[in-house]
Design a protein around this nucleic acid. Structure first.
Lengths: 191, 191, 191, 191
DNA sequence: GTGTAACCGAGACGGTACGTCCTGTCTTGCC
DNA sequence: GGCAAGACAGGACGTACCGTCTCGGTTACAC
């Protein structure tokens, strides 16, 4: 499509995302200004809006993008694979940028197109891995039938989310994630 | 201390909270204006700021206040009591005002005093009931020892929260809450 | 008219006017608030509005009222009487309360009833004395016919007003008033 | 210093001042709203505050700016030149925008920087012309020595100011200005 | 080479919400 | 009924931010 013109500088893309992550960690979603991101990145506001339609999209790109989990390796048992999943989710959500951004994204996502992007990227990606783990458990014979992946996803993601953002328990997230995996395995096999 | 002066009108308190809930349900947290609340309530902005230091505090008061759950009646079994708890939580979170407000509150709650209020009111209240249910299960002999209430709270609240606000599954929340109770019971007794 | 009830306390009347004059001298008309007057006077706002319909009326009463000049004694010559007039006007206008209030009163007086009160009290009173002085000069034979009193009034009041409020010359007002009287006498007799 | 950035649009400067003058003429200083100026000018409030620090500065710029008198031509006699000066001053002060603004400016000018601007622009400009006229009169031999320009300035400006804003005489301002010039000439030469 | 088109930093633009302040009225309980 | 205290409706102020647009100038690809 673009027949001519100067190509975009990758340096600018990176500077935007980096500055956004910095400022998210410093002041959270509220208190994040597009002008501040531009200033911190040493660029102009137009360069941001050339890449991200709204502030939300920019934050989404900075905080959520690149959270792609590598496909989960077969760990030999449902219990171990759930532990791997909850561990990855906990690691994903506990970064400073994500911590600052997620609440804000949920806010402004009421009507926007950001919500669908969020679902497509963040949710769908994790969902794929949940399905893979469940299917392997069925193959192994640990589960008689594959449960609803959405339910299992909520069961894994939800407690970690609540732990971090609603209850804000100061304790160790990794330990909680591990305990959660045990309880989830018991619920799925014993329930 | 204030010995004289005109007392505040309860009518105004109620009108503020009612208008806030209406507008939250209509347009969500974003799109909620203090001026619009004042206009809808038929009052002046000063009357709002006399009661709530910021917009966030007002929304918190409107959406979270009055979510007091009545103490959970003894349902005879852990499974039944967990069903009662998840049902109440699901009902609490799925109201239109809460739905519109919670994300917004999480956003602006990074540094504010709102976060502590949230914890004291919303979280602590539910926690009390969680503890009561667990203690009764121990008395009944369904549980050998009382698990960490914070963990159980996260296990119950988290999936519902995720279901509603992160995954945004369109399906029946009550059904999900009931299934969640079954899985939680299995996890606690069988794990 | 007042058939029953507690009579107004004169103490309050005085406290209002005194506090108003103090605050006018301190912060000028802008920066004067009714609440501040009430606080300074140790009274309530209602007590002010029971006596003065608007803030402007209160300021008017505090700054302009009581500026009644005693009738000008016959000084023996037009020149001396003009000196007496300009001296009194200068003294009247150079008080700290008047200085702070006059500009503000001129502002808000565009549509109000304050303007007519201003004219009736402040202007008409001075005008009477101008007329008396001019008539005596005619009787003495210093003037062939009585000039338009409004013109003479403007000729005497205007330069002092400008000196104080527009040009804001730091110099001695009394000296200027005296020089003005001399020039006015020359203009009236020699013109 | 500002090497880059979008330059300010002169159209906006002009629209602000024009709208301010219109609204001053319509509703006076009281009743003038920054928001109303912005709406009338078809611009945003920020564009106003980028140019004028306060509402007062904006009004000052709109009402007082551009009142530059052209240098007074030699009219051949002190009497004629004073008539020219008083005529210009009367014309300047009797415009609708100035009429609405001046009182308001005097009000808020008690502590502000507006007062110095006023002096530098409005007062100093007229003073220059007063000095020129007096010097020519000395050269012509009409005056033995140059009187204090501040005194003469007050003598010319003051009565017109009082006539318009304090006494609010409904009569012809131009006629009064002409009469004033005659009296001033008599005072200066005969006194 | 030389166009041309899109890029770049900087910052002004229209619009809108915020939280503060002030006015003039009203409402308590006390005197 | 007056009084101190202070809440009430309404509305302007000045600040801050968003997403768009406009400058002067730069940089790569196509001709």
């Amino acid at each position: 499509m673009p027949r001519g013109g100067r190509p975009r500088e990758e340096r600018v893309d990176a500077a935007i995302l980096s500055a956004t992550r910095d400022l998210l960690a410093e002041g959270g979603y509220a208190g994040l200004t597009v002008a501040a991101v531009a200033a911190r990145a040493g660029i102009g506001k137009a360069a941001i809006y050339r890449r991200h339609a709204t502030k939300q999209e920019m934050v989404f790109a900075a905080a959520v993008h690149g959270l792609d989990l590598e496909p989960p390796p077969d760990q030999g048992s449902l219990r171990a694979e759930l532990g791997w999943l909850t561990g990855v989710i906990a690691e994903t959500l506990s970064g400073p940028a994500v911590a600052g951004a997620l609440g804000g994204l949920l806010t402004d996502m009421n009507d926007d197109a950001v919500v669908s992007r969020m679902r497509e990227t963040f949710v769908a990606h994790q969902r794929t891995h949940v399905i893979a783990v469940l299917d392997r458990a069925v193959t192994r014979g640990e589960l008689a039938a594959r449960p609803d992946p959405a339910v299992v996803h909520a069961l894994l993601l939800g407690p970690i989310f609540a732990w971090l953002f609603v209850l804000r328990e100061p304790g160790d997230v990794r330990g909680f994630a591990e305990a959660l995996a045990g309880m989830a395995a018991a619920a799925l096999t014993g329930g």
